[in-house]
Design a protein around this nucleic acid. Structure first.
Lengths: 112, 112
DNA sequence: TGCTACTACCTTGCATTGCAAGGTAGTAGG
DNA sequence: CCTACTACCTTGCAATGCAAGGTAGTAGCA
């Protein structure tokens, strides 16, 4: 069975997923962060994401050379991977901002 | 091998996919259309979609009772399925417009 | 009647990817 | 050492976009 509510949530989830990679790069572009920082920032922006989604995505971006990381000690607990954008990542992100801008214009004109 | 260009196109594609279902419902909400009309309108909005994507999606929306269709004769060629939104579909779409508006606000504030 | 071309609808199989669930290991406090 | 906590990562499943291929109705024309 599939309720109306579930159908709606599914489509909403699709929207979130579509911008996920973009959002994560935006967050990293603001300064060195590690996974928990990213999860927190996404949550604050109403973009719920879990670890099982984030870690593979970070790995993917890393192996595409858009991200790099350095290990850093924590004051309390195990060491953390702090991510930053590479030059390639920064260029990529600029293009994505442009793409995002065009997409929202297209859709907003469909809405009217 | 994966080029910079391919990585970028992949992320762009993710963005498009995320809003696809929403866009298709927006197009149908403007009046009775059949598959080719939808493909044309999406293309005009820079949202490239192919048949193999559209037909299963229309079926899904139909079986979720967001869409309905009627067969109509064509002046030249085989008959066509003309789609419209059901009441449930209209309600759903209103919610999605709201979700879209919130999402764009969230992301735009991440961009700044 | 055949033949070709065109349009329209649909299906199959693959690749990608989000996510629930579970796993490993470092640190800290008692 | 034992428990709790944090951090990173993997496995297996399900959803879904898409390339490719398939079926069938219509039209024009010899």
């Amino acid at each position: 069975m599939t309720t109306q509510e579930e159908i709606l949530e599914n489509t909403k989830a699709q929207m979130r997923k579509g911008s996920l990679e973009f959002c994560i790069m935006l967050i990293i572009s603001k300064g060195e962060v590690y996974a928990s920082d990213i999860l927190r920032d996404l949550k604050n922006a109403d973009l719920i994401v879990v670890e099982g989604t984030l870690y593979p995505l970070l790995s993917r971006l890393k192996s595409s050379e858009l991200l790099q990381y350095t290990w850093k000690e924590s004051e309390s607990g195990p060491p953390r991977k702090y991510y930053t954008l590479t030059d390639k990542g920064k260029k990529n992100l600029e293009q994505l901002k442009h793409t995002w801008s065009k997409l929202t214009k297209s859709i907003n004109s469909l809405i009217k």
